[in-house]
Design a protein around this nucleic acid. Structure first.
Lengths: 121, 121
DNA sequence: GTCTTATACATCGGAGAGCAATGTATTGTC
DNA sequence: GACAATACATTGCTCTCCGATGTATAAGAC
């Protein structure tokens, strides 16, 4: 029987582009979690808003990325007693970001090939 | 507290573009399941191959689409005693296909906005 | 000064879907 | 007759998403 050799472009985005998006934001500039959340979910830009994700999705996603060494977080002071976790992308994170970007590009081209969309917005 | 209003473009593709891809193939022409599988996973076209999915993914996906009335299947003869299930897209399936296509387009633009890719292949 | 809202992170339970593996049966090829 | 290809089916495991809820601090209204 034919055995499926899994494809990277598909595998990377089996659960959506969440990792890519978070790495993309952090590649642009360091941020803390809640700010990423608001950026995606309250952006005036209707386009960006399409990437809105739940807090219960975003925080565990950040923890996973941190465990994998793709981002690094550090507690910083925000007020007198308040702390927040400041994240930045690591060198390995940038490599993975490049990789995911390629895979995303491949996936998009593939979908475009199968589904010949009319290029109307 | 800010309550997340979930977004369609994201929600539709939380589990990848599988539905869109299958509807896209069937919008082009009717096919049976194994042929779809081979089209995605054994295509000479390296681009299309990016959409390769497991049989254990594809068949349940087809059953879901059929339950939702987006595709319709009918057994046909293939040889003397062999049968296979011939699928075609329904009118409702075409509407959903348009809808998913829009959502996909939105998602792609959104990711492109957050992750400013270099347009090199 | 207290009430309300916003900021900021954390976590739990349920559900849905992907994948590897395996199984059944038929057909083609050497 | 053996082996591969065709074609569909199903099970168990795992992962991740989401909604909900919780904790705590800070800011603004009045």
């Amino acid at each position: 029987m034919y055995k499926t050799p899994m494809n990277d472009a598909t595998r990377c985005f089996r659960r959506g582009p969440g990792e890519l998006v978070v790495l993309g934001m952090l590649a642009h500039r360091p941020m803390h979690g809640y700010r990423m959340f608001r950026t995606l979910c309250e952006s005036d830009d209707k386009i960006v808003y399409a990437l809105c994700m739940n807090e219960g999705t975003l925080y565990p996603l950040l923890y996973r990325l941190e465990r994998k060494g793709l981002v690094a977080g550090a507690w910083e002071k925000a007020g007198l007693r308040r702390r927040r976790r400041h994240y930045h992308i690591t060198a390995e994170g940038r490599r993975e970001y490049q990789h995911l970007g390629q895979a995303w590009h491949t996936l998009v081209r593939a979908v475009g090939t199968i589904c010949a969309f009319k290029e109307a917005a």
